[in-house]
Every structure is written in structure tokens, then in C-alpha cells.
């Protein structure tokens, strides 16, 4: 009697497990269809609450990956990162979850999170298969941190023979060579004190430099003209134009000092966007 009960329990358990797998497969196919159609709201509902659906652990990982993928498409990167992190290393979706999880971390400016995710991945059996991609992503992160030595170390592992990676590897190399100019705020300030606007031109902003020169120059000319016509500086025109011109002159010096900071910020932003774009593109080609 006891044996019969055990056998029935085993059969029931197996049946439930198979049923759970089938549901998960159906749900996975359905979820992929929803994402393919761009029905993100429906995909989010499907993958919203997974714990009460009786999935097997493997099926649960698949659905967690699908949830991460849905959130990634919805540009909810923090939540997507969390869902990707939940996918176990035994899942066939683990490598994709790791790399896209790292991208989600970077979108949230969590460089430490992205690095630790990739470091953990490097210790798994998948590391050899994805060695070049891993080096590529780590190299990209090194560039985001402006750690050019680390980038050189990672780029030594680039083989340039993978169709999905080759172009972006070359782009990263170009970005690595494109260093910002070494500008000094002091030089910009002094240059603008000598010739108004010159500091801004030195910082790469020619348009603003010329505008500053014209503005300060116009008020200097007005002041000089009023002074010359009245033969004395003590008249309302000279005082008004002189005051406005002086204020413009001083603000032009401070503006030139600030423009060096703006140059570095702009360079950083362009660099950051280019690296983010480059390390993102191959993932779609490799995993889709």
C-alpha cells in the first residue's frame, strides 16, 4: 500500500512538472510573440507575477529572463537589471541575461554593478565561449572610466575576426585614441582678458567667442565715442555704456574659464554615448 502511494505521488509530481514545463514553454513562446509585436504592456502583465504560476526552477529562470527582456524594451533599466540578475547560471539564457544586465546597469550609471556582473560571469564555464565579447564589454567599461591602460589590456584579446564585433572593436580603438585636449581654465581666462572671447575660442566654442568679442567691442566703442564727443568721462552716456561694457568684459572672462569645464563635460558626454552605443550593438547581433 505504501509503495502504491509513493508511486502515485511520483507520477503526480512528474505530471505536474511536465505540465509546468509545457506552460512555461507556451508562455515563453507567447511572450516572445508579444515582444515581437511590440505589445510591451501585455508582455509586462504576462511576466509580472511569476511565483504563483507553479513553474519549475528552470522554467522560472526562462520567465525571469523574459521579464528582464520586456523591461529592457520598456527602458525600465533598473528593474530589468534586477530581473536579469535573478536568472540562474544553469539557464540557457544566462549569458544573454548577464550581458544585457550589464548594459542595463550602465544605463543606470552603475559601473560597479556592471563590472561585478561580468567578473562573476568570467568565473563560469561560459567564459571561454564568450571570452572576446567579455573582453570587449570590459574594454568599453574601461573607456567609460577613462582607464586607458585597462582598455589596452582588454583590447589585446580582440581578434577582429568576429563579424558582429569587428566594426565596433575598431570604433572603440578610435575612441580610445581620441583623448581630450589638455586645456587650462587659467589660460582661457587670461586669453579672454587680453582679447574678449579668445578664451572661448581656445575652448573650442568659436561662435560664442565671436559673439563675446562683438558685444564687448560694441560697448567699448560706444564708451570711447561718448567720451571723445563730450571730452570728459563724466557724462551719463560714458558712465552707462562703460558700466555695461565692464560688466560684459568681466563676465566674458568668467565665461571663458567655465567654457573649459563645459568642453570637458561635452567631450565626456560624446565619448560616453559613443562607447555605450558601440558596446550595445554587437549584443543584439550575437544573441538575437
Amino acid at each position: 500500500m505504501r509503495k502504491i502511494v509513493i508511486i502515485i505521488a511520483f507520477l503526480l509530481g512528474s505530471a505536474l512538472s511536465v505540465c509546468g514545463q509545457r506552460n512555461a514553454l507556451d508562455d515563453y513562446n507567447f511572450g516572445s510573440y508579444l515582444l515581437g509585436k511590440g505589445l510591451l504592456r501585455d508582455a509586462a502583465t504576462l511576466t509580472g507575477s511569476l511565483s504563483d504560476k507553479g513553474y519549475t526552477p528552470a522554467a522560472l529562470d526562462t520567465m525571469r529572463y523574459l521579464r528582464g527582456w520586456t523591461l529592457y524594451h520598456s527602458q525600465k533599466f533598473a528593474d530589468a537589471s534586477f530581473s536579469f540578475a535573478e536568472v540562474d547560471h544553469t539557464s540557457p539564457f544566462y549569458p544573454k541575461s548577464v550581458f544585457f544586465g550589464a548594459i542595463c546597469d550602465l544605463q543606470e550609471n552603475d559601473i560597479v554593478g556592471a563590472k561585478s556582473r561580468l567578473d562573476k560571469f568570467a568565473l563560469t564555464p561560459y567564459a571561454d565561449e564568450y571570452a572576446e565579447l567579455l573582453a570587449f564589454e570590459r574594454g568599453g567599461i574601461a573607456l567609460l572610466e577613462r582607464d586607458y591602460k585597462r582598455y589596452e589590456k582588454e583590447s589585446e584579446k580582440f581578434m577582429y575576426d568576429n563579424f558582429a564585433l569587428r566594426t565596433e572593436q575598431q570604433t572603440l580603438n578610435e575612441i580610445a585614441l581620441n583623448r581630450p585636449k589638455n586645456l587650462s581654465p587659467w589660460v582661457a581666462g587670461v586669453a579672454s582678458a587680453i582679447v574678449p572671447g579668445l578664451g572661448k575660442i581656445y575652448a573650442g566654442d568659436v561662435g560664442e567667442g565671436v559673439a563675446s568679442f562683438l558685444m564687448v567691442g560694441a560697448f567699448a566703442a560706444l564708451t570711447a565715442n561718448s567720451w571723445a564727443k563730450a571730452d570728459t568721462p563724466a557724462n551719463w552716456r560714458t558712465i552707462t555704456y562703460g558700466t555695461i561694457g565692464s560688466l560684459l568684459y568681466i563676465s566674458n572672462i568668467f565665461g571663458s574659464v567655465a567654457s573649459v569645464k563645459v568642453y570637458y563635460q561635452r567631450f565626456e558626454k560624446i565619448n560616453h554615448e559613443a562607447v555605450m552605443y558601440s558596446i550595445h550593438i554587437p549584443l543584439r547581433d550575437i544573441f538575437d
Binding site: 566703442a221 560706444l222 565715442n225 561718448s226 564727443k229 555704456y241
Partner: peptide
């Protein structure tokens, strides 16, 4: 009053 520059610019 002959302030041509001031008249034009300002």
C-alpha cells in the same frame, strides 16, 4: 544730437 553710434547700436 550727433550720437550716431549710440543711436544705431543701442
Amino acid at each position: 544730437v550727433g550720437q550716431w553710434l549710440s543711436g544705431w547700436v543701442v
